[in-house]
């Protein structure tokens, strides 16, 4: 694994041109190219065909592909999810967009009772190739009903894939792979990432679901960063490097499938583990990663694992409280230092 990671570390811009794109523009490009590649792909959701285009992520798609393939909807998340499921079972590749993850909860029945088990209970005969995009709000008082990230809920369901990109180029490659995966996929986008930019290859490309990425090498501590905490993790690693603490940043990319191999290989090198998870602490994704590592190599760890998460309470709207609610790179720095100090 360490050899493979060394290869992954190299910046590998693919042959061909790349353009500097924001996260939102990269999501947009992925859908545009998916629809160009396959007539079976269609995009829908509340406001999907509007001028604003769901924070720009669907802007221009209707003009390019017509209202047949890109359309607005009533506020009916449950039946929209069922629409996606029935269409996916028939071989289409729907992309259902939720401007805010919180509204997705209306479709929890569809996901847990129908979509998740669909292929399994069919005896493997049917497939469910649908993608649900869910955007997690953050800041300006989004509060308890506009800022939740319940990735661990859905990662708990057998049969569901959960994808959490942490950079623009990953957003494009992972969304293309999600759309063309034959399994149902929940694709979670941090709103806080939307304006971040990166060189994004112009051509379509597909990032393997279930393979984590070592974004930065380091020998002292493994930082598993998830989704919107990837940039903060890289920033923390940069700061710690100045203090001669070398952090290996592993971008998980997908919760399900979970690439434990890459995490274990890194922890094998560093002996220390910190997980940065943009969600609530208790019973969450960080807990799952830490438990999985401890089950396998617990006695070999040099320090107790640490987790950096949202506090276990709802996001407050009051600006000062909100500012103190979300973990920052400073929290990640502290956790890494604790791990290295063996505290």
């Amino acid at each position: 694994m360490s050899k493979a990671s060394a290869v992954e570390l190299a910046s590998t811009p693919r042959a061909g041109r790349a353009t500097r794109l924001s996260f939102g523009a990269a999501v947009n490009a992925a859908q545009r190219q998916a629809m160009e590649l396959d007539e079976n792909v269609f995009v829908f959701g509340i406001g999907a065909d509007g001028k604003a285009g769901i924070f720009g992520s669907t802007a221009g798609l209707k003009e390019r592909f017509s209202a047949r393939r890109v359309f607005d909807t009533p506020i009916s998340e449950q039946s929209l999810t069922a629409l996606a499921a029935g269409a996916a079972n028939a071989g289409l590749r729907p992309v259902l967009v939720h401007q805010r993850f919180d509204f997705l909860l209306y479709s929890a029945d569809q996901i847990a009772n129908w979509i998740g088990p669909w292929r399994y209970i069919s005896g493997g005969h049917a497939t469910m190739p649908l993608t649900i995009r869910a955007i997690v709000g953050k800041g300006w008082g989004q509060g308890p009903q506009h800022s939740k990230s319940l990735h661990s809920w859905f990662a708990h369901l057998p049969g569901m894939q959960v994808v959490m990109p942490g950079s623009p180029a990953d957003a494009k490659g992972l969304l293309l792979s999600s759309i063309f995966s034959n399994d149902p996929t929940l694709f979670i986008e941090g709103r806080s990432l939307y304006a971040m930019e990166e060189e994004v290859p112009d051509e379509p490309y597909f990032i393997r679901l279930g393979r984590a990425l070592v974004r930065r090498p380091g020998k002292d501590v493994t930082l598993v960063a998830i989704g919107s905490l990837v940039p903060g993790g890289l920033e923390a690693a940069e700061q710690l490097a100045a203090e001669r603490i070398e952090v290996e940043v592993v971008d998980l990319r997908t919760l399900v499938p979970l690439d434990l191999e890459t995490v274990l290989a890194s922890v094998g090198r560093t002996g220390r583990l910190v997980v940065a998870d943009p969600g609530w602490r208790d019973f969450g994704a960080a807990a799952e990663v830490i438990a999985s590592v401890c089950e396998r190599v617990g006695p070999a760890l040099k320090a107790a694992p640490q987790r950096v998460t949202w506090p276990h309470r709802y996001a407050p709207t009051s600006a000062p409280l909100e500012a103190g609610y979300y973990p920052t790179s400073a929290d990640i720095v502290r956790a890494c230092k604790s791990a290295v100090a063996g505290i």
Binding site: A4, V7, E8, A10, S11, T12, P13, R14, A18, L37, D38, R93, R119, T127, P129, K138, G139, Q161, G166, S167, P168, A169, D170, K172, G173, S177, F180, S181, N182, D183, R191, S192, L193, Y194, A195, M196, E197, E198, E199, V200, P201, Y205, F206, I207, R208, L209, G210, R211, L213, R215, V230, P231, G232, G233, L234, E235, E238, P257
Partner: peptide, 26 residues
């Protein structure tokens, strides 16, 4: 997992480009 549509001829594991972070959140 049940694989991908035929249009996915190659899957990449590496970073498409080098993302360094260090950008302000939206």
């Amino acid at each position: 997992a049940n694989g991908y549509a035929p249009v996915v001829r190659e899957l990449i594991d590496a970073a498409p480009t080098r993302f360094l972070g260090g950008q302000a959140e939206t």
